[in-house]
Each structure stands twice: as structure tokens, then as C-alpha cells.
Design a protein around this nucleic acid. Structure first.
Lengths: 196, 196
DNA sequence: CATATTACAAAAAATATAACATGTAATTAA
DNA sequence: TTAATTACATGTTATATTTTTTGTAATATG
């Protein structure tokens, strides 16, 4: 029996919640395990029963957030209707997610070093999900005759590449105070026309 | 008569050369005026006759580099031939410039904070040059019937926006080890098709 | 008389030191 | 027996101190 009365799962969940709040207050890299332990009314060492180290706790937070995005976008990708329309909607939602995040946690992306992140398994998974979703949408567009001159993989690669400034954290941060939805809409429309 | 035997212009030019070398060795933000003065066999204070402060020296370097890009690209923009072809060539050259720079001075763009740079007059000038050049090219494409459904300003805005990952320092750095020319070629082609 | 120097004040970087956070092991409680 | 604690070793971050660099002014030189 645990000393706290909480199950391991409950403890873990509570720790994640508190961590999320701490990160929001102090930023991505300067939150302290001692604070989290204090709030849980537990010694800091107790956290090591639930997470191998500080980085793992942090990664767990990121993973949760990415999973939320994945499912939200997957929902759009699975909707019925015009593929063109859905692709546009998908990009708008993706852009919206990133912008929201940047606005809520400005600290989070200040010095985002993609290079290191790109090797983490849950990031790789996330990117694979995005590609798979977009591939499926583009395939539907192909079937509907809305796209013609490229393979689905190439087409979705191009779409993602050309919209980098609307979903790359660093770029989203640069434009956080502008309303760039119209520009994105126009860009996606032109790209889809170009793929016809 | 100056004490050193060098004219003000020669002194200035030599200082710029040495500074460029020091920046390459020590990075953008940690080169020292004392070192440059030492190499010029002059007291550090003498530099203040030629440059108002350290930042001005640094800016002069950047300005020289940007001017070089501007003229190289302007040369392409002024060439005769198919506008479509020239627009593609223009983007390839632009990409090439940035990539070269990032490869030669990896320190230079490590923590590039665009926000602060964007207010400097020579940066504004540079961006205006780029836009003007691309506008002119797009206008020619419009005249040649290669583009139809957008105004030149909107079209060139879209082109630049969609190719951000090929000329924004932060993004170029992320992909410095890949050959992304084929991707860029394909992207520009699709964009131009979409603008038809 | 434009351009240098030296001397000096202010700002910034580098370094040493103290405080604190992280991670591990041995131990204890439910 | 799982999950906590305490005690402690190892890093890391914050702070104080010193040194170096930057910028200015008064002065000297070709």
C-alpha cells in the first residue's frame, strides 16, 4: 500500500497536471521538481518512482499535447466532404493549434531547438501521424480528380513544406500578433490549384 | 595627415575585413574590438573615428553581405527570358546565398533574433529590394500570361511565404546538410501553376 | 586638422563561491 | 512489497567579485 493513499496512476496523473501548470508559470526549462513534489506533499525523491528523470516528465507533457493535436486533426481528416475543403480545414486547424500554444506558453518556444527534439520517439510518431493523415487526404483528392500531377507523398510533402511558416514553432512565434488565416487560406488554395 | 599612413577609407575597409574574419572565428556576438585594433596596430579608441560603435561595425558587415545578395538577385531579375524560368532561378539563387552563408558561418545564425533585426534600416531596405525584384518578375509573368488569378503583390507575397523554409536563416540551418534544390524547384513550379 | 594616443568611466564578461536542485542508495512504513 | 522517507553525492544555477572590454574626453602628432 502506498503511503499517500493515491495509486501510482493517480500520482502520475497529478504530477503531470502540476508540472503542466509549473511549466506554464516558469517556462519549459526552469521549473523545479522540488516545487512539484512540494505541491504533491511528497519528497522530491518520490517522483523518481514514477518518472525515470526530469526529462521524462517533460516529455510526457509534450507527448500528451501532441496526441491531442493528432486526434483533433485525425477527426478532420476522417470527415466526409470535398477533399480540397478538408485539406484547407486541416491546415487551418493545425495552424490554430500551434498559435494557441505559442500564445498560451510564450516561454515554451523561445529557444526551441528542433534538432534535438526530432530524435525523440513521440515526436517522430507525431510527424508520421501528420504525414499519414495528409497523405490520406491527398489520396482522396487524387481519387476525386482534384489533384493530378504528383504522387500523394510528394504532394503532401510540398503542402507541408510550403506552409512551414504557419506551423513551425519558431515562425508561428514571429507572427503571433498577426491574423494570418486569410494568407494561409489563399496559399493552400494556390497550392492545390497548382497540383491540379 | 593621419598617423598611420592609411586614408580613412582604407582604414575602414581594412577594419571591415578583419572584423569579418574575427566574426567567422569567434561568432557574431563575441568578437572583440581590442583584437581588431591590435591586428590593425592601432589603439582600440582609434576605431571610433571610423565607426560610431561596435554595433555599427557589425551592421556594416551585414549590410555589405545583403547588398551583395541584392545585386546578384537583381542581375537575375533583369535577365531576358521566360518569367517563369527566371522566378525559379531567382529563388534558387536566393536559397543558395543563404545556405552558403549558414555553412560558412554556423555561429552566425545560431540564435538569430529576427525581431530585433527587422527594424534596422538596411534590413528593411533589403526586404524591400527583394519584394520589388520579385514584384517586377511576377508582373512580367502576368504580362506574358503565365500568371492570372492574383495581383503581383499578392502573388509575390505568397511565393515568398511558401518558400520560407528555403530562405529563413533558422530553417536553412535546420536543413543545411540536405540537398533541397529539387524540392524547391518542384515547389516553385507548383506555386506558379497554381497562380495560372 | 584630421586622426591618432592616453587616461579614465561605464558596461559587460569571465571567474570564483555559495546556494540549490537533481539523482541514487540505504532504510522505513503501510 | 510497493512506495514512501532520509541522507548524501553530484550537478546546476544564482550571486558576488574581479577582470576585461567598450565608449568618451582631453590631448598629442604627422
Amino acid at each position: 500500500m502506498p503511503k499517500t493513499g493515491l495509486s501510482s496512476g493517480e500520482m502520475k496523473e497529478k504530477a503531470l497536471q502540476i508540472t503542466e501548470e509549473k511549466i506554464r508559470r516558469y517556462g519549459f526549462e526552469k521549473f523545479r521538481l522540488t516545487d512539484i513534489a512540494k505541491e504533491l506533499k511528497v519528497s522530491h525523491a518520490a517522483l523518481y518512482n514514477h518518472f525515470p528523470d526530469k526529462a521524462a516528465l517533460l516529455d510526457a507533457i509534450s507527448e500528451r499535447w501532441l496526441t491531442r493535436i493528432d486526434t483533433a486533426l485525425a477527426h478532420i481528416a476522417a470527415k466526409p466532404g470535398s477533399p480540397r475543403q478538408l485539406i484547407l480545414e486541416w491546415f487551418l486547424a493545425y495552424h490554430e493549434c500551434k498559435k494557441e500554444k505559442v500564445l498560451k506558453d510564450p516561454e515554451l518556444f523561445k529557444s526551441f531547438n528542433m534538432a534535438a527534439e526530432l530524435h525523440k520517439p513521440f515526436i517522430i510518431q507525431h510527424l508520421q501521424n501528420l504525414h499519414a493523415q495528409l497523405n490520406a487526404l491527398v489520396q482522396k483528392a487524387l481519387d476525386a480528380g482534384e489533384i493530378a500531377n504528383q504522387s500523394p507523398e510528394t504532394a503532401s510533402r510540398l503542402l507541408l513544406e510550403a506552409t512551414v511558416s504557419f506551423h513551425h514553432p519558431r515562425m508561428v512565434l514571429d507572427h503571433k500578433d498577426e491574423d494570418r488565416q486569410p494568407l494561409l487560406k489563399n496559399l493552400v488554395a494556390v497550392l492545390l490549384d497548382g497540383l491540379k
